[in-house]
Design a protein around this nucleic acid. Structure first.
Length: 599
RNA sequence: GGGGGUGUAGCUCAGCUGGUUAGAGCGCUAGCCUGUCAAGCUAGAGGCCGCGGGUUCGAGUCCCGUCACUCCCGCCA
């Protein structure tokens, strides 16, 4: 099947049944074992490893070549497939029952000693791996991950094909939008002083496609956001972008649940399946119970609200939080009574990251509660409310801001689960977070869309759109897998007057709305169908399916945390002619090396 | 922008309260070896201790600054 000018078979292909055949293989030198008169080496390609043996006695010319082979040389070998003696078989290799006795070896390419040991199992620092990415990508681990990602894409395409979705491409040179994430901008040579922007998402185009009648659209789309990076965030990333017409929320969530479940079943590293149906959790409940809008449901450990109990207690910190309009909530640490004071207080900085001023705690021993706050709660109302048992520890956060309480305990919840080993790394658990607020305070007394400006509010809340934006809920939803936000979607606005009302609620003047979205507002007047959709972060999905800890591991050529490509050395300065042609002048402090200039 | 971690041989790391010539494993080089498969045995080469400054009789080790990688907060409609 893979026969070419250079080879008759791949390095993962030959079996016992092939013994006696004369074959040609081509690939990389994986490891050499030179025994003097008999040289062994493993030949590697994408498909596997095959052992080659070269006897000095039988093939002196080939042997002379073999004796000089080094790691990562590219060679072509011709030889016959030999059945290995029983005692010399290698059960670890798919091809381990045979070997190739080489008659002829042609060196196709040389290699100096590589900075990365391709054949080795040793973990190599990411800096070295990214700098020498091509060599790194030869490693089995990386090959397996990119193959899994490919398989995921195949599953997705097959699923959508079965359901009559149409794949349509949208522009990469798009229009800048001041809302949302920072844009990557691209100068226009033809229009000096003007700029395109790389798309943060194909959002508007897919809605236009709905208006144009392509009622089931998808695209595996590259998206760009010029924001700071994280373990699960790259400046360019890939979305499965989808949109459908004449649909309500369930028409989107159903297929997405099915699609993601199939992805897990088909490609997940642990061979497990996703429990269904997925729970649907409101945004408010997610924050209350899990302290996060992307709850990890691989373990329970819910946060318990204790505000009512704390309201009349004698502990000033708790009462102060309640009186200030905030909350007191707590979380159980199963078996935490066995922890030292030091171990328990190690959770304090975790809570502090999200603004908690302290982390109160008590232990439940056989003789009752102990610890700093125990004396304020002589009864068993706290342990009872939290369904705690003797042997547990209880952690509490109290603050006048319920958001601080929620997010702090959310972080503590994850830390407790990790410390107590509650997370089954081989399990998958998903949910949908629904009923997002339409707007969040923008910090300047105004409102900014929690999802985006084209999201349809919940019908009953439409009336409050301009009078009380804070109480309007959105028909928006996020699929969440293992505590990772996998995507985001919504039912969209298809009536121009609703769209305009949303712009007004955001504080966008008529003129600005017209300037930025005029063509879209006009389009909505020409019979826009009700529609909605979703976008899934495929890098994140691939990461979870591979059991990887960061998104870079499932991207062939990722950027570092400072958005640099260590292999290609981008971004880089450009030469003055390019800048002149674009009428761009670069204004940098003297100290900046090579600023805007290329030699 | 802020906070934490890391930076010593090609790679992965050790190097204590500052002390004499900075170590190990792998890899590499040379030699031996016809059943190895993380081959084995013998010998050897290989270092701007990220970079700059300071303290000290003396700095890989302490202090200040800086750079790179990484995790988190902010940011990510």
């Amino acid at each position: 099947m893979y026969e070419t000018h250079y080879r008759t078979h791949t390095c993962g292909e030959l079996r016992l049944e092939d013994r006696g055949k004369t074959v040609c293989l081509a690939g990389w030198i994986h490891r050499c074992r030179d025994q003097g008169g008999l040289v062994f080496f493993d030949l590697r390609d994408r498909y596997g490893l095959t052992q080659v043996s070269v006897s000095k006695e039988e093939y002196p010319e080939a042997h002379a070549v073999a004796a000089g082979l080094k790691s990562e040389y590219t060679v072509q070998i011709e030889g016959s497939v030999l059945e290995r003696p029983e005692s010399a078989r290698n059960a670890k290799l798919a091809t381990g029952a045979i070997e190739i006795a080489a008659h002829r070896i042609a060196v196709l390419s040389l290699s100096p000693t590589p900075p990365i040991d391709v054949a080795g199992k040793e973990e190599i620092s990411e800096e070295v791996r990214l700098k020498h990415r091509p060599l790194d990508l030869r490693r089995a681990e990386n090959q397996a991950r990119l193959m899994m990602r490919h398989k995921m894409n195949r599953t997705i395409r097959a699923f959508l094909e079965e359901r009559d979705f149409v794949e349509i491409e949208t522009p990469i040179l798009a229009k800048a939008t001041p809302e949302g994430a920072r844009d990557y901008i691209v100068p226009s040579r033809i229009h000096p002083g003007k700029f395109y922007a790389l798309p943060q998402a194909p959002q508007m185009y897919k809605q236009i496609l709905m208006c144009a009648g392509y009622d089931r659209y998808y695209q595996i789309a590259r998206c760009f956001r010029d924001e700071d990076l994280r373990a699960d965030r790259q400046p360019e990333f890939t979305q499965l972008d989808m949109e459908m017409s004449f649909v309500g929320q369930d028409d989107i969530l159903g297929p997405i649940e099915e699609l993601l479940s199939r992805c897990v079943k088909d490609v997940a590293f642990c061979g497990c399946e996703l429990p269904r149906p997925w729970p649907r959790i409101s945004y408010d409940d997610a924050l209350k119970q899990y302290g996060s809008d992307k709850p990890d449901l691989r373990f329970a450990l819910e946060i318990v609200d204790l505000t009512d109990i704390a309201r009349d207690c004698s502990f000033k910190v708790f009462r102060g939080a309640v009186d200030g309009g905030g909350a007191v909530r707590g979380i159980r640490v199963p078996g935490g009574a066995a922890f030292s004071r030091r171990e328990i207080e190690a959770f304090q900085p975790v809570a502090a990251v999200h603004g908690a001023k302290g982390l109160a705690w008590m232990k439940l021993g056989p003789d009752g509660a102990s610890g700093p706050v125990a004396k304020f709660f002589s009864g068993d109302e706290l342990p009872r409310a939290m369904q705690a048992e003797v042997g547990d520890a209880l952690l509490f956060v109290a603050d006048a801001s319920t958001e601080v309480v929620a997010l702090s305990l959310g972080a503590v919840r994850l830390a407790v689960a990790k410390t107590c080993g509650l997370i089954d790394e081989n399990a998958f658990a998903a949910c949908f977070v629904v009923d997002f607020p339409m707007f969040l305070p923008d910090g300047d007394g105004g409102w900014t869309p929690a999802h985006h400006a084209f999201t349809m509010p919940v019908k009953e809340d439409l009336a409050h759109l301009e009078s009380d934006p804070g109480r309007v809920r959105a028909q928006a939803y996020d699929p969440v897998l293992n505590g990772v936000e996998l995507g985001s979607g919504s039912i969209r606005i298809h009536r121009p007057e609703v769209q305009q009302a949303v712009f007004r609620a955001m504080g966008l003047s008529e003129e600005i709305a017209q300037d930025r979205f005029g063509f879209f507002l006009e389009l909505l007047q020409y019979g826009a169908p009700p529609h909605g959709g979703i976008a899934l972060g495929l890098d994140r999905l691939a990461m979870l399916l591979c059991g990887a800890q960061n998104i870079r591991d499932v991207i062939a050529f990722p950027k570092t945390a400072s958005a640099v490509d260590l292999m290609a050395d981008s971004p880089s300065a450009v030469n003055q002619e390019q800048l002149d042609e674009l009428r761009i002048s670069v204004d940098l402090p003297e100290a900046s090396p090579g600023a805007g200039r290329v030699i």
